[in-house]
Design a protein around this nucleic acid. Structure first.
Length: 123
DNA sequence: GCATTGACGAAGG
DNA sequence: CCCTTCGCCAATG
């Protein structure tokens, strides 16, 4: 059995879109959240926000666990919470991060929003 | 190899 | 305001 099999197993050391997503997500500070589109836009694939979601799908298979719980859709809704184990884990972690979640939606989402295209640009 | 799906997003009705 | 359609790219059937 293989240890880890990324979606695109072209080459382990090959530059992958997924790696970029993971790298950005890991840089998300606590108490902050971002959207798939924001990450995609930062990577230049803003038209393909879905791919970011796909990367998240593999995120749990990646070594340094990616805080996918800090990534939500542009509505601030925990669209991917169903992919966590248990599904309620996502909002629980966010709550620990001082991020209030109500009705599967982050309260004051824009206030917690963390845009890599801005934060990482200012450095 | 074509058709469907998907943790999205924006636009249209 | 709610629902539908299109676009994007990759994976899966």
């Amino acid at each position: 059995m293989e240890k880890k099999k990324p979606v695109s197993q072209k080459k382990p050391t090959e530059y992958s879109f997924f790696a970029d997503v993971f790298d950005v997500v890991r840089q998300i500070p606590k108490g902050r959240v971002t959207s798939y589109g924001a990450i995609a836009s930062y990577l230049g694939t803003k038209l393909s926000a879905r791919m970011v979601g796909w990367a998240m799908n593999a995120a749990h298979s990646v070594k340094p666990k990616v805080p996918a719980h800090r990534v939500v859709n542009r509505n601030g809704m925990l669209s991917g919470k169903a992919h966590f184990v248990p599904p309620s884990l996502m909002e629980e972690i966010l709550l620990k991060e001082k991020v209030v979640v109500k009705n599967d939606v982050i309260v004051d989402f824009k206030n917690h929003f963390w845009d890599p295209a801005i934060e990482l640009t200012l450095e």
